[in-house]
Design a protein around this nucleic acid. Structure first.
Lengths: 110, 110
DNA sequence: CAGTATCCCAACGGATACTG
DNA sequence: CAGTATCCGTTGGGATACTG
């Protein structure tokens, strides 16, 4: 591990750093979902940002997008095999974040 | 672990999500440093952002700031005990990011 | 040395309207 | 249904100048 210079903690922050990306991730870890499903499960997300974040994650290879050529169209999003490598990392991040929030709530030093 | 709604992956992304914060972290993991040292070791960071990020990290309890009341002033930054809990998390994030970058370089699919 | 203050630009994200 | 296009406000961050 190289801590001196180009350490790519930033990389994963960019991949997960959109406002709704972690939420999208958890949703797709839970089960494959259609665009509309994601909208319903993620309150307050706009179509624009949902669409944009989905394309970002797709381009990073994290999620798969399957289009069924029907009318009306059906599109299913799922976590890719590669995307599954993110799960343990996200769990670790999540655990730290949970503890951090708890700490802030208990001791509102700021 | 609760993956349905408020999962705090976002929390750690906020804590580490400034442009220079991961770099600052690695620097302070390596050794305690003064403001000027950090400037030297982090090329291209502006005084404004270095100062701002340091205060952010301090307020989150990640780093300690020790002022020596000398002339000229001397200020030493260090990783707090609590901040050290971030190290293993950052290592995991770093490892995934490193692999992700390598993958992109090998297979420039995009 | 270790910062602050100010100005400014670019990126992010929300609201709304439109489409194959 | 699953998006895209446009507009617009907010925030993040760079450049420069100044200070205890």
């Amino acid at each position: 591990m190289n801590h001196q210079r180009e350490c790519p903690v930033e990389t994963i922050i960019q991949v997960l750093g959109g406002k709704w990306k972690p939420m999208i991730l958890w949703q797709l870890i839970e089960s494959n979902k259609r665009f509309n499903d994601l909208e319903k499960h993620i309150p307050d997300v706009s179509q624009k940002m949902l669409s944009q974040h989905l394309r970002d994650l797709e381009h990073e290879g994290i999620i798969d997008r399957k289009v069924y050529p029907t009318v009306p169209p059906k599109v299913e999003y799922s976590l890719s095999e590669y995307g599954k490598t993110l799960i343990p990392v996200a769990e670790v991040m999540c655990a730290w974040g949970e503890n951090h929030n708890k700490k802030k709530y208990e001791a509102p030093a700021s």
